[in-house]
Design a protein around this nucleic acid. Structure first.
Length: 578
RNA sequence: CGGGGCGUAGCGCAGCCUGGUUAGCGCACCAGACUGGGGGUCUGGGAGUCGUGGGUUCGAAUCCCGCCGCCCCGACCA
């Protein structure tokens, strides 16, 4: 491509609404433009990168034996009604009506549609397993779109769905996808971790997230430096605490006037926070009712709400107010685990408390606490892991230190089981002739999100630094002057590279060299070839990698071969034009 | 949905508090000249429903009310 004919509208200044690195650079370097909140158009460079990522995903999916399909984005209401998700998704669905008043929505994901596709034509276990995928535009009315392509209301997603006859088969399909995702993320040149994750309300039993490490990530994850344990903090565990051995004095009530916080109580009673119990009061929404719960963690710990929610099997948990607590007979600041009525409240006890020695806790009486409260002896409750894992906690798998990171969810794989197939009556006949629901899995990759994610990981003060595999062009060739011989040499290198199948951008604009360098760095082309006066006189041209400080002087005749070698070394196979 | 901020040329901003000729600046854009290895200089030029609707006023970008849009934090989020 000739730069003079290309549409690459770079900006010196970033629009003020952009704050995230990738958002700023995508706008400045002329890859995308905003049309509305969470709605973007892909300019030529943006579309090239998006297509490259999509094609890497496609080639690995195909290699795994999956087949590409294309489902509609415009969906009649009935499909999501079949599984109850029309209401469950609620406002996230982009809803619309046709001229006859028929109700539709734009697809946020396609489990129902694919299940319908399969139930129509797949009747026998002999037709299984099956893995179908698509690369398609999804629509979700996010409560808060943000950070450019990182969280959009319209975005490109690769969604795959596997259908198996048995649970074991489904796990095999899941494992195959995990391997495929590894290959994909490696080819994309991203630094990622595969982490255990919460499956969400409908996820099913097994799931894993492919988290790309980045400061701007919305997700907190923990990973072990010594082994391959990694998890989203929503579900991350730490080594189980050792059980306390030895006698503990009898529980005793003490007066603690006005001491409502852990800090105040531990100072007043001269007891470290590690020997106190913190009470957390929640309002809980289950599928069939609403109620309250108390969660108890050690005074110096934080509980993670998702863990509380999962332990309760709830749809939603919200911290309750002091007034609300009083309504169920609790005194905020003096709440403890003993003497509670388990019929009115769900009681969760973190395992660290269940195995610990005696603790200071609220007495469930104004202005009083108790000392030496022991689980099993003085109080009871459902023992679960509630605590939020923090930097330095022990790895549950090897015991070494865990570290916390920010991550961007680039992919998520699930074993769904028969959740959708049984609701939608999607069955096949097994060897014995019995109708059985398909055992499903689903696998997503946020293709457009990965465009931004790659930039979050690959940039410097001057602009983007694309990995070779997804760069919009592999090389940019520029003459550092407008003399005829410089231009002619640049032209001939351009043609020589194109003949080998290299994707080249020829900066043939009548601009000063500085402008060309600035733009080349900003848009992030991995290799830059500059034809300069001095060099050309010696029969040499400059070759510089975007990630390196210095340029290499190369004999003009060797340039094409060297560039081809560098591109192929980066894992790209070049196909000369036919 | 709660909190905060913003809306003036393609982009970044000033002007608004204290209303008053033709609404300004930088970048970008067009023409010309000089220049030519890290966004160069000069001259001339084009480009604006001041988000939108209403109100106050002799007069509104500026004051008042409503609405819309956008960003950030939180809530939310397969």
């Amino acid at each position: 491509m000739r730069y003079s004919l290309a549409h690459i509208p770079t900006l010196k200044e970033a629009p003020k609404d952009a704050t995230t690195v990738s958002h700023v650079l995508l706008l400045r370097a002329g890859y995308i433009r905003m049309v509305g909140a969470g709605i973007y158009e892909m300019l030529p460079l943006g579309f090239r990168v998006l297509s490259k990522i999509a094609n890497i995903v496609r080639s690995e999916m195909d290699r795994s034996g999956a087949q590409e399909v294309l489902m509609p984005a415009l969906l009649p209401r009935e499909y999501f009604e079949e599984t109850g998700r029309y209401t469950l998704y609620g406002d996230v669905l982009m809803k619309l009506k046709d001229r006859k008043g028929g109700e539709y929505h734009l697809g946020p994901t396609h489990e129902e549609i694919i299940t319908d596709m399969v139930r129509r034509d797949v009747k026998s276990y002999r037709q299984l397993p099956l893995n179908l995928y698509q690369v398609q535009t999804k629509f979700r009315d996010e409560p808060r779109p943000r950070a450019g392509l990182l969280r959009c209301r319209e975005f490109t997603m690769k969604d795959a769905y596997s259908f198996d006859a048995t649970e074991e088969g489904a796990f095999k399909s899941y494992e195959a996808m995990r391997e495929t995702y590894h290959r994909i993320f490696k080819r994309l040149g991203l630094d990622y971790r595969i982490v255990q994750a919460d499956s969400g309300a409908i996820g099913g039993k097994t799931s894993a997230e492919f988290q790309v490490l980045a400061q701007s990530g919305e997700d907190a994850i923990v990973a072990c430096g010594s082994c391959d344990y990694a998890a989203n903090v929503e579900v991350a565990a730490t080594n189980p605490p050792p059980a306390h051995v030895g006698a503990v004095p009898a529980m005793e009530k003490v007066e603690t006037p006005g001491k409502k916080t852990i800090e105040a109580v531990s100072e007043f009673l001269k007891v470290p926070a590690t020997e106190t119990i913190k009470a957390l009061f929640f309002r809980v929404v289950w599928a069939d009712r609403v109620g309250h719960a108390l969660a108890f963690v050690r005074g110096d710990r934080e509980a993670h709400e998702v863990k509380v929610q999962n332990a309760l099997g709830a749809l939603e948990v919200v911290m309750g107010s002091a007034d609300e607590a009083f309504g169920v007979g609790l005194f905020a600041g003096y709440i403890g685990p003993q003497g509670l009525d388990a019929t009115k409240l769900e009681i969760l006890v973190d395992r660290e408390i269940a195995t610990g020695a005696g603790f200071v806790a609220g007495a469930n009486e104004k202005q009083h606490h108790v000392k030496h409260a022991v689980f099993g002896r003085d109080f009871t409750g459902k023992v679960v892991d509630l605590r939020k894992v923090v930097d330095g906690d022990a790895c549950p798998s090897c015991g070494k230190e865990l570290k916390t990171y920010r991550g961007i969810e680039g992919g998520h794989i699930f074993v769904l089981g028969t959740h959708y197939s049984s609701k939608m009556n999607a069955t096949f006949l097994d060897v014995e002739g019995n109708a059985k629901p398909f055992v499903m899995g689903c696998y997503g990759i946020g293709v457009s999100r990965l465009v931004a994610t790659a930039i979050e990981q690959n940039h410097d003060a001057d602009g983007i630094r694309w990995p070779m595999t997804i760069a919009p062009y592999q090389v940019i060739v520029a003459a550092a002057g407008k003399e005829d011989d410089l231009r002619a040499a640049a032209e001939s290198l351009y043609e020589g590279l194109r003949a080998r199948g290299v994707e080249v951008l020829l900066d043939d604009r009548d601009e000063r060299p500085g402008v060309k360098f600035k733009d080349a760095d900003l848009i992030g082309i991995p290799l830059r070839v500059v034809v300069g006066k001095k060099g050309l006189a010696e029969g040499k041209v400059e070759l510089k990698a975007r990630t390196e400080k210095d340029a290499l002087l190369v004999p003009t005749g060797d340039l094409v071969d060297l560039v081809v070698k560098k591109i192929e070394a980066a894992g790209v196979r070049l196909l000369p034009p036919t």
